[in-house]
Design a protein around this nucleic acid. Structure first.
Lengths: 111, 111
DNA sequence: TATTATACCTAGAATGCTTAGGTATATCAA
DNA sequence: TTGATATACCTAAGCATTCTAGGTATAATA
């Protein structure tokens, strides 16, 4: 189980990162995260969709309805140019925090 | 500048980590973080003190007033046993999220 | 004597996730 | 054919938590 705060901080970069490798629909994003994390991250639909909607409003991603082979309607998302830049920002931010934490956790912290 | 969400997720583990190496007072925690991060993380007093108070209420840390050499009163904090366990939890959670992000960012993600 | 740095505190605004619901349809077993 | 399950989407409102913007007090310095 991952804390609320950590969830909140990681959803956006994760979604952007997943979308960086191509189009994908919401429900599938959840499955991917569960799979990649080996079940450690328990993403719910209720937390995913609002984030997707907000990111679309902010022009980081764009959506398109499609009908799959089995007749289901799915909303596919893809990254915009702005979204690619945002991903880079998020990645840098995450890494800068991670570096600080790492240096605190190392038995012999860097000077 | 680090996003609000990422701030929210990292303050607690950072404070616990800093306190793991010994007693320290609030104002000094801010200076440490600024120094360790090379100025990347801009911690304010307004965000630190409420977190310290909450963590003390939750019994992760304990405080004690002391008078420094120059006569200033300072509130020193130290980790409790519960706080040490909490730090371990936080560290594990952070790493599990970091692993997922890393695998998404690697050009050749691990199978 | 005035300014700056140190050192603490908090109310309330703003933000934004999570809970807890909801709809609709395809598949599959009984 | 009927019921259960999985798929696939959505949202209102509660709740938690930072951040803004103030506040107090004192030592050091100009």
């Amino acid at each position: 189980m991952v804390s609320k705060n950590l969830m909140a901080a990681s959803t956006k970069p994760m979604i952007l990162s997943i979308l960086a490798s191509g189009e994908i629909y919401g429900y599938q994003i959840i499955q991917s995260i569960i799979q990649i994390s080996g079940g450690t991250l328990e993403w719910s639909e209720g937390m995913l969709y609002p984030v997707l909607h907000r990111m679309e409003k902010e022009n980081f991603i764009r959506s398109q309805w499609k009908i799959s082979d089995n007749g289901r309607r799915r909303k596919y998302y893809r990254l915009t140019e702005l979204g690619k830049k945002e991903l880079e920002k998020e990645r840098k931010q995450w890494m800068s925090v991670h570096r600080v934490l790492s240096s605190l956790w190392e038995p012999f912290p860097a000077i």
